[in-house]
Design a protein around this nucleic acid. Structure first.
Lengths: 255, 255
DNA sequence: CAAATAGTGTCTATTAGACACTATGAG
DNA sequence: CTCATAGTGTCTAATAGACACTATTTG
């Protein structure tokens, strides 16, 4: 425990926070193969990773993974460390999205919490495991998670994170976080609709591949000889594989 | 000073933060009338409000207004209170945008700071005044502010806020925060280009008023008898006045 | 051949983008 | 009359949106 912190402010005896916790909302898209002999697209569902708390407070309740920031780390480093310690999940891309500071939100005292979200392919959370703090670590369909009573104010945190990724799914290329390096247009469409159920585009393949302004978001994957690479994992007729480029179009409501 | 905070966590003697400050980036657009007898559009420039610090640390340096959160308030309430106390500015719309937690960012100790931005018409900051903490409160053109040495990590906070409002200026209707209730298309265009210098639309008036998908962002202002209301404040020929509606178009990179 | 998914042809309405043009009122 | 700004006419190319159609493979 460090004590090189005695500046005039803290020395003056002001009340200071009892901790700066982080909470991490890890989203993934679960795939469940449809029964039946024929090749068919799997069902994809947006899910969120929750842990079952072992300790007071909110013992036994489902909660977001997270924990307390240490003096010599940033809140982002804390989120990364706690995610690993509590769930075994590593190497995910974390994005900070909000702070939760309502008085009384945590019975342990004055806690201002910093919330992150991550979008990952299911394989990243395949290695999840329980820990000292978590007697269970599970994926819950978002709608179920939002209908449950969660620890602290974690239900609003999940709701806020969901709102955020819904907006970002359509305006940025975060869909790529949920997808393997190369994927078919149908898979991309499924990912988008799993997150944004209201999304519907009739000529999706056209829009995403043929219009000038959006040409550049995706590129066709080709092999060493320049032949288009296809996938027939989920279809009879092989489908062209694509990957995201680094390009992101600029959106504007004014033109 | 309250001490109803003795939960098991803080009781365990862990090191806790020395404070949860807020920093507020108040943007405004300054208008300077052009010299010359004829009516002409004023020059509009994006500016940020800075205070000159009276106290240690960073005494005498320019800094963002802000201060320490109290136990019984949210960080947003703190930002609102500190802005009023330090600068006399009230009733502005604050948006939270980031947290700053790099170890060592504040010589007073372990301080995790919460940054807000506000966009206001110049008249909101007209009432600004000095205070116990600020020997001066001034508006600085953003480019100048970013070229100065500011207290703490405030330069990166200003830079981050600027990046954020540049993105939001084109994708949301925040332009309205900088404008009076009713305004002309030329004024709107000036506000947008003051924030996003690279913005250029040839047929701006057309885009914003005539295309189906964007019809609905703005509406023409009419008087009680339904006659279009015009303004000739900045032009010989009177220009139609518009106001923002509540509608915000949904943007998508996919179609 | 039927099923399941991938992808194209083709038509029309809307929009984008450029640029020349007209309109209004002050001085 | 000129200036400065507001706003329209008009043309072409690109895009959106609908829907019927063809293509590829499995079982």
């Amino acid at each position: 425990m460090s004590d090189n912190h005695a500046g005039p402010y803290s020395a003056a005896g002001f009340r200071t926070p009892d901790g700066a916790p982080t909470d991490i909302v890890v989203f993934t898209i679960t795939k469940t193969e449809r029964t039946g002999a024929k090749k068919a697209l799997p069902l994809r569902k947006l899910a969120v990773m929750l842990i079952k708390r072992k300790q007071w407070p909110c013992e036994g309740m489902w909660a977001l993974p997270g924990g307390f920031t240490r003096e010599q780390e940033t809140v982002e480093a804390c989120a990364r460390r706690e995610l690993l310690e509590e769930t075994g999940v590593a190497d995910v891309h974390l994005a900070y999205f909000n702070v939760y500071s309502a008085p009384g939100r945590d019975p342990r005292g004055w806690m201002i919490s910093h919330a992150f979200f991550a979008l990952v392919e299911e394989r990243y959370v395949a290695s999840r495991r329980t820990s000292d703090e978590a007697s269970d670590v599970s994926l819950w369909p978002v709608e179920e998670a939002l209908a449950m009573e969660l620890a602290f104010d974690h239900r609003s945190i999940v709701a806020d994170a969901l709102g955020r990724i819904r907006r970002e799914m359509l305006t940025t290329t975060i869909a790529k976080e949920f997808l393997p390096e190369t994927f078919t247009i149908a898979e991309l469409y499924q990912v988008i609709t799993a997150v944004v159920p209201s999304f519907e585009e009739k000529n999706f393949i056209r829009k995403v591949t043929s219009t000038q302004s959006r040409r550049g978001i995706l590129e066709e994957v080709r092999d060493a000889e320049g032949r288009p690479m296809m996938s027939n994992r989920y279809s009879q007729r092989p489908a062209q594989l694509y990957r995201f480029t680094d390009y992101a179009p600029e959106l504007s409501i004014y033109g």
